[in-house]
Nucleic acid binder design. Structure first.
Lengths: 135, 135
DNA sequence: CAGCATCCCTTTCGATACTG
DNA sequence: CAGTATCGAAAGGGATGCTG
């Protein structure tokens, strides 16, 4: 849990914290859904196809810990828990969506770059005698 | 290598690609250094404290594959390899730095949120008889 | 309903040794 | 100098079963 090095600049730690939270598998999806308003646990779970309950829990906990979402428990039966973005969470949504826009706008360029890199690389390979045709 | 689900929106895949590249352990550091101009392999390695040559290599390969950096080999002895951001790489730097600025500007808020979350959590814990004082 | 605990597999990362 | 190859540790992530 505690970083060992990469303190190139003093602020670098904080930057990496955010970037790796945002870069994990589910955070952005969760934050994005919560951007539309508060949601319950299973409501989120149903919305985000493929997420396990374990990952949803830990993603929400992480976001809660960092102050991006609030968790409100209603002591009813059955229990009800609402998750909602804080102001900080809504602020986070802005730069994240900028990055998302970048990704969307450059999707083709990146895909092309990959394709040409991969084919250029394939050409350089050892080309073993039993090489399968390109998959 | 192939994602199984989380295609909530068609663009979601592209977004996640970028976010997870940028969220990995070293990419942002490398891209940030290259933002100042082209650099050689060992120059980068010396600049980024704690990075192993394996991770620097794979980070650079990933960035090259996605079209964010160029790799220029000078067939001299000893060999020399320059890495430099492409236009796409410099474009990437913009939203990334916005997110970095967000991280820096909200570092304290996040740290506070964590501290209060952690202490609130500690209070709820089983409080074992031999609980160590806060580390 | 909203979780926690457990098991287990996969991916990521770091350390070390070797090469053109 | 600029890598590749290999190994093992650690973290991430999924499936399942159980609880208040």
């Amino acid at each position: 849990m505690k970083p060992k090095h990469f303190e190139v600049t003093p602020a670098c730690g904080a930057v990496h914290q955010i970037l790796s939270r945002v870069g994990d598998k589910w955070t952005v999806l969760v934050v994005n859904y919560l951007g539309a308003g508060s949601m319950r646990f299973n409501e989120l779970k149903r919305s985000i196809d493929g997420i396990s309950q374990k990952m949803l829990t830990s993603t929400l906990r992480g976001l809660e810990r960092d102050g991006f979402v609030t968790r409100t428990v209603f002591p009813t039966i059955p229990p009800r828990v609402d998750y909602e973005l804080t102001d900080l969470g809504r602020d986070l949504l802005v730069p994240v969506r900028n990055l998302a826009d970048f990704a969307i706008q450059n999707e083709t360029r990146i895909a092309n770059a990959r394709a040409s890199f991969d084919s250029a690389n394939k050409a350089t390979e050892i080309t073993p005698p039993f090489a399968q045709a390109a998959e």
